[in-house]
C-alpha cells in the first residue's frame, strides 16, 4: 500500500508549522507501517493533547484522540480487549513525560504491547512555547524568559529504568533509521519507546536562537552518533541514537491470560 493511502487526505495540508519535525515523523511512521505491510484496520492510534497529538487525525486507522497525558491509559484499555491490534501512541515530550509521566512509567513497567513514540521538540508548542520537561537546563521558553533551571529527563534512561523492553532514539534528520526503528518497535511484542528528536523551529528554535528547521536538523546530524560508537567516548556531548534495549520479556496481555486460566482452574 502506498504511504499516502494511509492518510486522511481531506485534512491536508496539516496544521503543523512550516518545517515542523512532526510532519517528518508522520511521513516515516507511515513508511514503517508500509514496511510491515500492516492493514489500516489492524492499527489503533491513540494520542493525547498537543501539537504531536494531532497526528491521529491525519491517519486512516482506528484513531482515538484523548486527553492530555492520558493516551497510554486509553490505549491500555483498548489493547487488553483487542490484543491482536497494533497500538501506536505518539506523544509530545510534555504530554508523555510531564502530565503523562506517571502513566508512561507504569505502562513501561507492565510491558504491555504498545508502541510509544515520543516526538521530542523540547517545548510546549500548541500553547505557545513554554519550557517542557525535556527543554533542559539553560534553555529559554516563554515561561523561562531568563533561563530554564529545570533539568531535562533522559528519555532513554528513564524508559530503561521503568522497564520498557524496546528503547530507541533517532531524529528527523535520520529518516531511514527512523523507519527501521519504528518498524522494529511496532513489531516488538512488549512496551516499546522510540524517542524522535523533532525540531520546533517556531518556538524552541526561535527562543533559543538555533536557526530554522534545516539548522536544527543539521544539529541532529552533527551532534548525534550511533549507539556504542567510538565518537561518543571522544566527545561525550554527542547524543547517542539507535536501539538501546531490545529484549523479550513476558507481555502483559499474555500474562493476564495466565491469570484467567488460573482463575478458571480455581473454580473446578
Amino acid at each position: 500500500m502506498a504511504v499516502k493511502d494511509y492518510i486522511r487526505k481531506r485534512f491536508f495540508p496539516h496544521i503543523w508549522c512550516p518545517g515542523c519535525g512532526h510532519g517528518i515523523v508522520l511521513n516515516n511512521l507511515l513508511r514503517a507501517i508500509e514496511k510491515l505491510k500492516l492493514k489500516k484496520n489492524e492499527i489503533v492510534m491513540t494520542s493525547g493533547i498537543g501539537c504531536s497529538s494531532r497526528i491521529s487525525g491525519y491517519v486512516d486507522f482506528h484513531t482515538l484522540h484523548t486527553i492530555h497525558g492520558r493516551a497510554l491509559c486509553f490505549a491500555t484499555g483498548v489493547k487488553m480487549n483487542r490484543p491482536e491490534l497494533k497500538l501506536i501512541v505518539p506523544m509530545g515530550d510534555g504530554d508523555a513525560l510531564a502530565i503523562g509521566g506517571n502513566h508512561f512509567i507504569h505502562a513501561a513497567r507492565r510491558n504491555i504491547d504498545i508502541t510509544a513514540i515520543i516526538m521530542n521538540n523540547r517545548i510546549y508548542g500548541m500553547t505557545g512555547g513554554q519550557f517542557s520537561p525535556l527543554s533542559g537546563y539553560g534553555t529559554k521558553g516563554t515561561t523561562a524568559p531568563f533561563m530554564n533551571i529545570d533539568h531535562g529527563f533522559d528519555v532513554v534512561e528513564l524508559s530503561k529504568a521503568a522497564g520498557a523492553t524496546f528503547v530507541a532514539r533517532t531524529s528527523t534528520y535520520h529518516v531511514k533509521q527512523m523507519v527501521d526503528i519504528l518498524a522494529d518497535a511496532i513489531d516488538h511484542k512488549g512496551f516499546s519507546v522510540v524517542e524522535i528528536m523533532s525540531q520546533c523551529p517556531t518556538y524552541f528554535g526561535r527562543k533559543n536562537k538555533l536557526g530554522g528547521a534545516t539548522d536544527m536538523m543539521t544539529f541532529y546530524k552533527d551532534h548525534t552518533t550511533p549507539v556504542g560508537s567510538k565518537e561518543k567516548k571522544a566527545n561525550p556531548e554527542l547524543i547517542e541514537r539507535g536501539i538501546f534495549v531490545h529484549e523479550d520479556l513476558p507481555e502483559y496481555c499474555n500474562e493476564y491470560d495466565k491469570v484467567i486460566e488460573m482463575a478458571k482452574a480455581s473454580l473446578k
Binding site: 482515538l64 491509559c73 486509553f74 484499555g77 483498548v78 487488553m80 483487542r82 506517571n102 507504569h106
Partner: peptide
C-alpha cells in the same frame, strides 16, 4: 486492572468500553 491512579482507571475503562 489495577492502574496507577484513578485518572488512568477511568481512561482505561473508556478505552475498553469503546471496543465493546
Amino acid at each position: 486492572l489495577q492502574m496507577e491512579d484513578e485518572i488512568a482507571s477511568l481512561c482505561a475503562i473508556i478505552g475498553a468500553s469503546l471496543t465493546g
